[in-house]
Design a protein around this nucleic acid. Structure first.
Lengths: 121, 121, 121, 121
DNA sequence: GTGGTCTAGACCACC
DNA sequence: GTGGTCTAGACCACA
């Protein structure tokens, strides 16, 4: 796993995002055991506390469940994962459309613009 | 003008965004004189220092030009404004497509999803 | 017997509570032989060490007596059991009243509130 | 303010509880500015990080709102405060009744017991 | 060995 | 001066 961080946002947030993405994509399947805090921290080259901050957020989001002594696992509740994935996709599109609308793109023009960008990518 | 800020990002950045938008949309036409920092700060209910920082950014972006004596004006270079508008639109779409691709949406599926979101908005 | 644990508190404490309850209610009558640690541990799906710790606490509370050769039995001293039951009840009520008082419930109001909660349960 | 902690639970949780109680009781009225993290930490004799952990929880509970630069204030949403107070009271009573029921107290007997305890307090 | 907590001290952005 | 973040290092309960 390639960890890369920018300094415009807290590292723990970026960790949360990247781990969340792995869960949403199924790279960490539901129920799978997650590596320990110390191990992940070593991999990512951050302080264990920082990694733990990220894991706590992951738990708060309901994507990971922690048993006090036996490490954490990805949630078994697939609906939570799917809901998170859908929410992320919808948020991205909504933000995009919001900006385009601000710039004067009507619905049809916005769609055409997206299509165009998609093609000569 | 309705100024509203969230506290998840620096206020000066949000000011920059909103002022930039007004320029891109032509509400502040090229060459037009911008209100003074103190006046704008009073309107927005922020510290003049904060507004000052936003204006400095606007100058750095090339959208505003400042003469030490006569206040600031919107740039006369229309190409700069158009380029900025295009860049903002492309960035928004690119970010959106990036997220969708991360989540496993192929090009066609992404477009379909955007269309769908656009419809039941 | 249905064993269920939450991970907000040590498992051995929860075992102690549930076993204690069985003794107080008479499900394990005074003088009765308790199942062996290994057997109980298997039932509850926990490590024998954990169950062992719970039993030690039960002994410390005076509710179980252990003879090195013949396993453990529930105490024959009924007064100990009755005292424990009374203490548990009083502690529960005292804690409840403490919280209610903290929140501004006077004696009468507290009682009325308890009555109300009891009814629409 | 008298801060006293026990070592059976995390200090930050105890801080959260005590601050929450002050808010629920109105000692910190809605909208009131809370002392800074460093100041509170000094008062309580704990590390600023520990105090911040507590404040973050208070924010997550919706009882405090934080503006990135101007300190925290008690929420203005009185309904949140009232809901929290009611929830705390109901939880306390429910726990009490649960224990009493486990011990064999029927509804009426439980109420009578509470009344008795309340009197010779 | 696991996660959780706490301390100490430092740095930074923001206003 | 405010809150937020990060590091480093230590301790503890639990299983």
């Amino acid at each position: 796993m390639e960890w890369s961080f920018t300094d415009d946002r807290p590292i723990w947030q970026q960790i949360v995002e990247q781990l969340t993405l792995k869960i949403l994509k199924g790279e960490y399947p539901p129920g799978e055991r997650l590596p320990g805090v110390r191990e992940l921290a070593a991999q990512a080259g951050v302080n264990p506390n920082t990694m733990q901050r990220a894991m706590a957020q992951l738990e708060a989001d309901g994507l990971a469940v922690g048993s006090r002594t036996a490490g954490r696992t990805v949630t078994n509740d697939v609906s939570v994962i799917e809901a998170a994935a859908r929410a992320r996709a919808k948020a991205a599109v909504a933000e995009c459309l919001r900006v385009l609308e601000e710039l004067g793109y009507s619905g049809e023009k916005a769609l055409a613009f997206v299509k165009e960008e998609l093609n000569h990518e």
